[in-house]
Design a binder for these strands. Sequence first.
DNA 1: GGGGAGAGATGCCGC
DNA 2: GCGGCATTTCTCCCC
Lengths: 237, 237
Amino acid sequence: MKRGVELIRELLDSKRTAAIMANCSVSYNGRAKSYLEKGDRLIVIKADSTILVHQPAGSNPINYMKQDTQFVLEGNVLHARNAKEFLDIEFHEVYSVLARDLKDGHELEIHGTERQMSDMLYSNPEMIEKGFKPLSREEHTKYGFIDLFGYDSSGRLAVVECKRYSATLDAVTQLRRYVEKIASVKGVSAVRGILAAPNISPNAKKMLEDYGYSYCRVEPPKHYERHKKDQASLDNF
Amino acid sequence: MKRGVELIRELLDSKRTAAIMANCSVSYNGRAKSYLEKGDRLIVIKADSTILVHQPAGSNPINYMKQDTQFVLEGNVLHARNAKEFLDIEFHEVYSVLARDLKDGHELEIHGTERQMSDMLYSNPEMIEKGFKPLSREEHTKYGFIDLFGYDSSGRLAVVECKRYSATLDAVTQLRRYVEKIASVKGVSAVRGILAAPNISPNAKKMLEDYGYSYCRVEPPKHYERHKKDQASLDNF
DNA sequence: GGGGAGAGATGCCGC
DNA sequence: GCGGCATTTCTCCCC
C-alpha cells in the first residue's frame, strides 16, 4: 500500500500520462455534490492535469476534473482542486500504476457534422427545394444564429434549420424563434420555416405543421474516400 | 511489437479492464466519420467491451465505442464493431499493457440536480412567491413535460421551469411551449410563466420580459452533511 | 425501443 | 469572459 501511494506521488511530479488501478472511494463537491463508495476503479491522470475516475463498466468517467487542477497527496488521500471544485480520492489499495510520457501532435479529422450539412445545402440548394436561392449561412441574431436562409422559388424568405440526427421539439421551437426574428427584422410577415434533417419525431412533425413550416429530408454528408484508402491499406494484412 | 499485440489478444478474451499505452492511428465510421493520424495514446478496454481512445491531453476520449462491441484483432489492427459503427485502431508500437479484473458494486450518489431543485420548490413554494400553491410536478404533455405548476397568490395558473445553472434562450422557449400548452388545454388565456434559476442571460431576460413572464432567483440545493462527515474522517490523516 | 429532457453535460466559436 | 449552440453528445425516465 505504502509503495503504491509512493508511485502515485512520483508520477504527480512528472509530466506523464498515468493509469492507476486501485480500490478507492471518491467524493466530489463543486457544480454538484457526489459520493462514491469503496470499489475497484481505473484512474487516469494526464500530463495536462486532467483526472478521470472510471468504473469497470460504462463509457463515461464516474468522476473527473478537467485541466488546471492542483494535486495534493495527503496520506492515502489524493486531493484534486481547481478554482471552484474539489475531488478527493481515498486509496484503500493500489493494484498497479502505469506511467509514460506520451507524444501526440495530431488532431481528429471529422466529417458529417451539422456545419458540413449546411455547407452542403448552401452549395446544393436543390436538395432543399427546386429553385431555392441561398442568401447566407450562420447568420447571427440576438435570438440565436441561423444555419441557412434564402428565397424559395416563389421569392418568399425562408429560414432553414439543419439537424444531423432526428429533429426534436427543441429544433422546431428554435426554428420558430428564427422565423419570428427574421420576420420582425425584415418587416415581412410571411417568412417560411424549413427544418432539414434525416428524421423527425412525430410530435415535432405535428408542431411543425401547426406552425405551417416544412420538413425536408436530408442525410448529413459523409466523405468515404479516406475510409476506402484505409481499407485498401488494411487489406495488406 | 509482436509481443505487445499478443498481450492485447490475451486480454480481449479475458473479462478484465485494460489500459494500453501505444503509438497508433485510429479511424471511425458510424454516426459521423473521423480519422486520427499516428500518435501516442492511452486505450482503455473495459470488461463490458467499452473502448476509449485518449490523447495525452484533454478530458474527453478522442474516439470511443460503447458496450456491446465485438473485437477482432487482425495483424496490427484492432477492429471494434457494433450494429452500426466501426472503429479501427492500427498499432504501430505497443508500449505497455495493464489488465486486471476490477470489482465494483457501487453507484454514485449525487445531489444538487434539477429534479431535487423542483422537489425543493414543491416543498417550499414560498421560495417562488409568497402565497404560491403547487399543484403538481413533472406533468407530462404532448409538447414536453413541466417541472412544476400551480396557482399564484391571486389564483392565476402558473407554469414554473427550473434550471440548475444559468437560464438561456432555450429555457425561455421551453417555458413558452408549456405556458401555451397549459393555456390551450385548460382553456385559460392568462397563464403565468415563471423561470426559476440561480442566473439568467441578458438575452433570455429580455425575451422573458417580452412574453410577460417572470424570473425567480433560486439556488439549487446541496446537501453538505456527507462532505462534513468525510472531512472529519480525512482529518485523521 | 423511441421520444423528450437533463447533465457536475463538454467543447467550439464569436462578440 | 459570457452567450449561443452542436455533440459519434450520454443518460435517465416514461410511454
